[in-house]
Amino acid sequence: MEHPVILSALFGVPEEYKHVFYTWLAMAVLFAVGFLLRGRMKLVPTGLQNFMEVLIGGLEDFTVATVGEEKGRKIFPLLCGIFLFILAQNLLGLLPFCDAPTANVNTNAAMALFVFIYYNYVGLRSWGPKYIKHFMGPMPVLAPLMLPIEVVSHCARPLSLTLRLFGNIRGEEIVLLLFFSMAPLASTLPSYFLFLLAKCLQAFIFYMLTMIYLQGAMEHAH
């Protein structure tokens, strides 16, 4: 089922690359907000600056409270970027003429693979060769058995990150389209509230899981 009227088609973007177009659109929105706010920062925030300060400040406090002062501040820029980026992408799906880029499995796979590579890099950097202890399990005797199991379960992480986000957002898009074709406005408007919550929650879960993985890579093995 195709989107009836869509912004990417107006720009001449082919159907199969529209998620790339909307990813760039989400980035453009975030950059615009950033540049808009950077120019006129106020000591007493109002409006948009207030909203962004509450959001980012709240996330920072939450990250620091969970991961710890030093490590939390170090990984926070990445986590906040992921949260805002996914939130913007998810919310694009609720705008008329737009589509959520996270409803395409490729966008999510790219982000999940990045998280996978990054947390392993952080682990290697903080532990060096001792990082392998994270894969050995609690007992040295069981290490040969635990090593492949841990490797498989680490490989499952990007998969579950990708599929969860993709399934949720894609499902919501399909439901919205179906509702809209049956009874425009009357049926889509109430579901907007539910989906607004669900999309924020999905962005938050992605952020939270990234934080859990990074924390696991940085702290002592078992």
Partner: peptide
């Protein structure tokens, strides 16, 4: 809790 079910399945798929 939101990903417990998926964790079990994605382990099998990845393996």
């Amino acid at each position: 809790a939101g990903v417990v079910g998926l964790h079990m399945v994605s382990g099998i798929i990845a393996g």
